[in-house]
Simulated scan of single mutants.
Amino acid sequence: MQKIVRFLCIIAAFLCVLLGVIGIVLPILPTTPFLLLAAILFARGSEYFHRWFLSTRLYKKYIESFVQTKAMTKKEKCSALSMITVLLGIGFIFSPVWYAKALIIVIAVAHYIYISFRIKTVKPSEKEISSIENKKTEKIMT
């Protein structure tokens, strides 16, 4: 059973990577959440694939700085909230059931609260400096 779960995690992670790559080209599909989910699924499914994914340019360009600093720039927050609004708005418009619409509103509000108040906002220059410091600390520890 454990092997089946690990295999399914790996398959799902590759699917998330594919959706993340498609999201780079299509602005309606968010890239970062899919790549973060892929990292989590790879970690659960296979240490080999997890190490491989962490070494890819895709990971380093789109999510490494967020994972290391736990912070976003104002532009990144606005972009994330815009995508969330568009995607949940589409779901809200096409949902025929009132309780599904209510659930979508609750999810949207939770996203706005979490991104606005729980994720630290930094200037782009602060994020780069913090990311460099984290890399140095990581190298020293290994």
Rank of each mutant, 00 (worst) to 15 (best):
P27V: 14
L58D: 06
H50P: 05
T56E: 03
V25E: 07
F34S: 08
I24Q: 09
I40S: 13
F49Y: 11
A43K: 06
E47G: 08
I24C: 14
I40V: 15
L19E: 00
L29S: 08
L18S: 15
R57P: 01
S55F: 02
F53C: 01
S55Q: 10
F53V: 01
A38Q: 02
L54A: 06
L54G: 12
G23P: 02
C16L: 07
F42I: 02
I28W: 09
L19G: 06
V25L: 15
K60S: 10
F34N: 14
V21S: 11
T31L: 13
R57M: 07
L18N: 07
L58Y: 01
F42C: 02
T31F: 09
F49W: 15
V25Q: 07
I40W: 12
T32V: 15
L37Y: 03
L26R: 08
G20K: 05
L54E: 12
I28H: 08
L54M: 13
I40Y: 13
L41K: 00
V25Y: 13
G20F: 00
I28D: 03
L41H: 00
G45Q: 02
T56A: 07
A39L: 15
L37K: 12
S46R: 06
V21Y: 10
W52N: 04
S55P: 00
F42L: 04
I40M: 14
P27R: 12
L37M: 15
F42Q: 01
L35M: 11
F49I: 10
L41C: 04
L58P: 02
G45L: 05
I28Q: 12
C16A: 12
G45N: 08
L19W: 13
L36P: 03
S46Y: 09
V17H: 02
